[in-house]
Design a protein around this nucleic acid. Structure first.
Lengths: 267, 267
DNA sequence: GAGTGGTCTAGACCACGTT
DNA sequence: ACGTGGTCTAGACCACTCA
């Protein structure tokens, strides 16, 4: 079907307008290997073909039936491979229309197609130096963020944290006191907050969300971190959620920009 | 099997040590709805159950066979749902052992389990004001980054880019001239570089990688961006790759920190 | 109406880990 | 030896899109 080298598709009676429809994807011969999952081989083969640069974005892939024939595989296996490509953002799939080589979105939106991110830098040591730990009533601001009524009791915890012994981030955490009647200073020196809440209070933090902005080290932060005031740092807000959707911790952190950076992979 | 409420498992002759093996997951009754894919209903049901807080991390899920019976669905459907949960990082799966509620890794590593990131802020307009466009020989630095031999011809393009008419980022791009014999200033005003390379030179950029650091606006950047010198900005390095792995563009950018921020979702 | 991808089933064989 | 998840097949019905 749909052999693009045939020019007959270009409606002979209509004026020849640049169709903007790229030539469909043509697959090279395929030989399956042993000892590696077939769906994986097929996915790899398709990735190689589609990334070869021989086809334009928007090009139509063969239908699933055609792929079954070409790869001599069942539809389930083909669909397994295609689903993988779809998740990786290499192709778009539409019922009733077909599968298409994805248009590169790398620039269109500021980031169209996600991929992965990493934080590059040394891993944080557990715990850290407790700079202060107080229990007080939530003001309207914090109460709003934590989703509490005003005047509820909260813990405010300031810690300096290290990576391989080097101070790298100053964190101020706000926690509803209801979650953890006690919060011994000692434990916070050497353990992750997440672990303490889970193992000593049965509170599971399942999800977190971070907002990252550039900032400038204040004199106070700089003194703690051993850097000069005014140098660039990351300012990070984190909300950590409990299983039921409530916020278990709200945290503001200042992280050294000379030690850490974020890496994004886009496709 | 493995009914943890039976205490017989705790080797009666051995001393009673806390086994650390959490109670297995017990599923509530399930009734399927109409008009929504079964695998999706099952996945949702499992998410709700696992996130309910009734089970500890590490708890074993029923085997696939048991799930088939419980949900009265075929194994393919069950596996479809489980694969989804696995991808979302809610469960860990191990051949020969089973599936388990995932242990929260949110803090252990600086980021144990990734999820997604977004850039929050207005989308970039295509094109932008060309501040300068020169063609010159690559010095050792740029040649090294682009993977070229010294003295190869490159384009150096400085652009001010906008979002909804507001200047938001200053970009300096380095491109091997071999990719695009011509690079008309005019086109760069109104089109994405990626699109120009693809449609006018048949060069497809398939992948990009960004490094993000905090920085401080220089007097020059600030003037272009309409902000004060010294305010925090993002400094972004981007390498964009061709299908064959070569670098098609190396770019340094300064982006307003008061307009954009990064959001990470961790699980 | 023909072709597309989405869903679902039933059954098979396998390598792996535990016991 | 047994149960686990991983792979693969063959066949069915559906809703959707397009000509």
């Amino acid at each position: 079907m749909a052999d693009a080298s045939r020019s007959a598709r270009r409606a002979p009676s209509a004026p020849v307008v640049a169709d903007a429809r790229p030539a469909p994807v043509l697959l090279p011969p395929f030989a399956r290997a042993a000892h590696v999952p077939l769906h994986h081989q097929i996915a790899e083969d398709l990735v190689l073909t589609l990334n070869s640069g021989r086809f334009l974005p928007g090009a139509a892939l063969p239908g699933e039936a055609a792929l079954c024939a070409h790869y001599r595989a069942s539809r389930g296996t083909i669909r397994h491979a295609l689903a993988e490509l779809g998740r990786h953002g290499l192709i778009d799939r539409h019922v009733g229309r077909g599968s298409f080589l994805r248009r590169p979105k790398i620039e269109g939106n500021i980031v169209g197609s996600y991929r992965q991110f990493r934080v590059e830098g040394p891993p944080l040591d557990p715990g850290g130096r407790v700079l202060s730990l107080t229990r007080r009533r939530a003001d309207a601001n914090v109460a709003g963020i934590l989703g509490l009524r005003d005047n509820r009791s909260i813990f405010v915890l300031k810690r300096l944290r290290f990576a391989g012994g080097m101070p790298v981030t100053v964190q101020t955490s706000y926690l509803p006191a209801a979650l953890c009647p006690s919060l011994p200073r000692r434990r916070l020196d050497e353990r992750h907050l997440v672990d303490i809440l889970l193992e000593e209070h049965g509170v599971a933090m399942t999800r977190a969300e971070e907002l990252i902005e550039p900032g400038i080290a204040s004199a106070y932060d700089a003194a703690q971190l051993g850097i000069r005031a005014g140098v660039p740092v990351f300012q990070i807000e984190r909300r950590t959620y409990l299983a039921d959707g409530r916020i278990g911790e709200f945290r503001r952190a200042v992280m050294r920009g000379d030690v850490y950076r974020y890496r994004l992979d886009l496709r």
